Simulated assay, not measured.
Amino acid sequence: MKTVQFVLLDRFADWEAAFLAPALREGVMPGHPGKYRVTFAAPDGRPVRSIGGLRVQPDCGLEQLPADCAGLILVGGMSWQTPQAAAVVPLVEEALRRSILVGAICNAVSFLAAHGYLNDRRHTGNTLDMLRAWGGAAYTGERLYEERQAVRDGLWVTANGTGYLEFTRECLLALEADTPEAVAASYAFNKQGFCKE
């Protein structure tokens, strides 16, 4: 069983990992066992608090990815322009070297733009204007921007802050967490619930 590591910074967005982490650990649908171990990392391994006030004691700091790491998930929030976010750059570099999935949602996508990671791969984000503003001269990938909830390009998944279900779906597919049919069924269930409106 391989590990998927989630990065949480202070004021992280509670909802942006709320579907993906359980699906990896416990399975995408009842009766479909999970295929991954999930760990949470934060700066210096210290507790972080979400936008909603949830206090999380992480499993580890941001020193390096686990030896068995299959995915690095950058959870959005309000601290991706702070000095503590800079500690995430070496993890992204390590993921690149090791051909590990990188998933980013909301402001974490803008963080990737600011460090030049989106210039040669299809992506989305909160808005193109926001990627330009955060990325400045480091962001030259606007021709590859797609106005969609989530975009998967090989081992990279990006999503806007309201695309958490689509982000979950694309990460699950990229990680082959279950069959495409089971992932699609899970997405439809979470999107529509028991009643279609």
Score class of each variant (00 low, 15 high):
Glu146Ser: 13
Asp68Cys: 10
Arg37Glu: 13
Ala137Trp: 00
Asp44His: 14
Leu72Tyr: 08
Phe12Pro: 04
Pro22Ser: 10
Arg98Trp: 02
Leu144Arg: 13
Pro47Cys: 10
Glu94Cys: 05
Leu8Asp: 05
His115Leu: 02
Ala17Cys: 11
Ala113Tyr: 01
Asp120Cys: 09
Leu74Glu: 09
Gly53Arg: 11
Phe111Gly: 03
Leu131Asn: 09
His123Lys: 11
Asp14Glu: 15
Gly141Asn: 11
Cys69Ala: 15
Glu16Lys: 03
Pro43Trp: 04
Pro33Thr: 11
Phe19Asp: 12
Tyr145Thr: 07
Thr127Gly: 03
Ala114Lys: 13
Ala113Phe: 02
Leu65Asn: 05
Leu91Asp: 09
Val109Arg: 04
Cys69Leu: 05
Leu144Lys: 04
Pro83Lys: 10
Leu9Gly: 08
Arg143Val: 11
Ile105Asp: 00
Asp120Asn: 14
Pro22Phe: 06
Ala86Glu: 15
Arg25Tyr: 01
Arg121Lys: 11
Gly52Thr: 12
His115Arg: 15
Gly76Pro: 02
Arg97Gly: 12
Ile105Met: 03
Ala42Arg: 09
Gly77Glu: 10
Pro33Asp: 09
Gln81Asp: 15
Phe19Cys: 10
His32Ile: 14
Val89Tyr: 01
Val92Phe: 02
Ile100Leu: 06
Asp68Trp: 06
Pro66Leu: 10
His115Trp: 00
Gln64Asn: 04
Asn119Glu: 07
Gln84Thr: 12
